[in-house]
Amino acid sequence: MPLIRNGEIVADTWRVLEEVEDIPAEGDVIVSLERLKNSTKQIAARADRTGVAIENSADPVELEAHLAHLDLIALEFPAFTDGRAYSQARRLRTQYGFTGELRARGNVLVDQAGFLKQVGFDSFEVTDGQSLEIWNASARSMTLTYQRGYDGGQAIREFAR
């Protein structure tokens, strides 16, 4: 599962922690929401970074108390047609002020690249077999966006009309 960040395939320094594993003191790990809630102190005391992966039915409000200790939030696309994570991302960025890494995982297709960036995702675990070239072409295929307040593209706001 290649990871794309800033238009490049990069090595993934993050490891998804199994439920049975203890939380290590070192290394970048992604934990579940349950883990995050149950091990708050332990996570706050870690030397390295912690991220959380949440279901797309979870309310971002559940993360609110933990945001200070989170460097990454992974949001799920169980099917590319299931767009709940777009709204979760949007809420995390604009309503909870999350500035860490927002990762899209699951069934993530190149043709969604532009939308994902606009709502605030910055790393993407894309399905195997999709070329970086097509991903970047897709991400750049629309340089204009009518919506105000979203990232990416040149919004009407900045366009001299």
């Binding site: 047609t81 299931d82 767009g83 777009y86 532009g114 939308f115 709502v119 919506q147 979203y150 009407i156």
Partner: peptide, 13 residues
């Protein structure tokens, strides 16, 4: 029409 065109958040409802 403009606002809803390729809305990044609401294209996979």
């Amino acid at each position: 029409r403009q606002w809803s065109s390729l809305h990044p958040e609401f294209s996979f409802l």
